[in-house]
Simulated assay, not measured.
Amino acid sequence: MAEKTVSEVERMVVTRVFDAPRELVWKAWTDPKYIMQWWGPKGFTSPACEMDFRVGGKLLCCMKSPDGQEFWNASEFHEIIPQEKIVSSMYFADSKGNKIDPATLGIEHEAIEDAFDVTLFEDLGNGQTRLTFIGNEPAESAKNSGQMEGWNQILDKIADVLAEMKQAK
């Protein structure tokens, strides 16, 4: 069977409207201090996160499961349009940021060849922002593997972080 190209596959898309201005949503998404509060699905924590937020820069975050297992993710930034768009390539990594096969962690992950993750930030007015995350995994695979559910739980956690950020202002 021939490999499918980006245009031939329906990609995983998660969208959420936050009751927060775009500037705040951008900050929650791009500041390691806040990323550590939401990285990973419900029940997971993030004990470490480093970021060099520029085109060609990288993100390295640790996600710790409730039973204490650590999973590292890294991303490289390919395009950044402040408060509008981030294009990156995310992958499973070791604690130094070296790419690893997710199967070595017991994780089933099907990426689309040559696809990047795209995060869009849309100002809806009235202090609301739509965040859209388009992953590099096929939609059906993301649904079956729990990736879609995990990303929705992450967006729930971001909503909580944004509520705290707004209170602190």
Score class of each variant (00 low, 15 high):
Met1Asn: 06
Ala2Lys: 07
Glu3Pro: 10
Glu3Ile: 08
Lys4Asn: 11
Glu8Trp: 10
Glu8Ile: 09
Val9Phe: 00
Met12Arg: 01
Val14His: 07
Thr15His: 04
Arg16Leu: 10
Phe18Leu: 07
Phe18Cys: 00
Phe18Lys: 03
Asp19Ala: 14
Glu23Trp: 00
Val25Ala: 15
Lys27Trp: 04
Ala28Trp: 00
Ala28Leu: 03
Pro32Tyr: 08
Tyr34Ala: 10
Tyr34Asn: 10
Tyr34Trp: 12
Ile35Cys: 04
Gln37Asn: 11
Trp38Cys: 10
Trp39Ser: 07
Trp39Pro: 00
Gly40Leu: 11
Gly43Ser: 09
Phe44Glu: 04
Phe44Met: 13
Cys49Thr: 13
Glu50Thr: 11
Met51Ala: 11
Met51Leu: 14
Met51Asp: 02
Asp52Pro: 00
Phe53Tyr: 08
Val55Tyr: 06
Gly56Ser: 14
Lys58Thr: 00
Leu60Phe: 06
Leu60Pro: 02
Leu60Cys: 01
Cys62Ser: 11
Cys62Trp: 08
Met63Leu: 08
Met63Pro: 13
Pro66Ala: 10
Asp67Tyr: 14
Gly68His: 10
Asn73His: 12
Ala74Val: 08
Ala74Tyr: 12
His78Arg: 06
Pro82His: 08
Glu84Phe: 03
Glu84Asn: 05
Glu84Lys: 15
Ile86Tyr: 01
Ile86Gly: 00
Val87Gly: 01
Ser88Thr: 08
Ser88Leu: 09
Ser88Cys: 12
Ser89Pro: 07
Ser89Phe: 15
Met90Ile: 06
Tyr91Thr: 04
Phe92Pro: 02
Phe92Lys: 11
Asp94Gly: 03
Lys96Pro: 03
Lys96Val: 08
Pro102Ile: 13
Pro102Thr: 14
Ala103Val: 13
Thr104Leu: 02
Ile107His: 02
Ile107Thr: 07
Glu110Leu: 14
Ala111Gln: 14
Ile112Met: 03
Glu113Ile: 05
Asp114Cys: 03
Ala115Leu: 01
Phe116Asn: 15
Val118His: 02
Thr119Pro: 00
Thr119Asn: 12
Phe121Gly: 04
Leu124Ser: 06
Leu124His: 05
Leu124Cys: 02
Leu124Thr: 09
Leu124Lys: 14
Gly127Leu: 15
Thr129Asn: 04
Arg130Pro: 04
Thr132Met: 02
Phe133Cys: 05
Ile134Gln: 13
Gly135Leu: 05
Glu137Ser: 14
Ala139Met: 05
Ser141Trp: 01
Ala142Pro: 06
Lys143Cys: 00
Lys143Met: 06
Lys143Pro: 00
Asn144Met: 13
Ser145Ala: 09
Gly146Asp: 04
Gly146Lys: 12
Met148Thr: 11
Met148Ile: 07
Glu149Phe: 09
Glu149Ser: 11
Gly150Arg: 07
Gln153Ala: 03
Leu155Val: 05
Leu155Tyr: 13
Asp156Gln: 12
Asp156Tyr: 12
Asp156Ala: 13
Asp156Thr: 13
Ile158Tyr: 15
Ile158Lys: 12
Asp160Asn: 07
Val161Glu: 08
Val161Met: 05
Leu162Asn: 07
Glu164Lys: 05
Glu164Gln: 07
Met165Tyr: 08
Met165Trp: 09
Gln167Leu: 15
Ala168His: 07
Lys169Tyr: 05
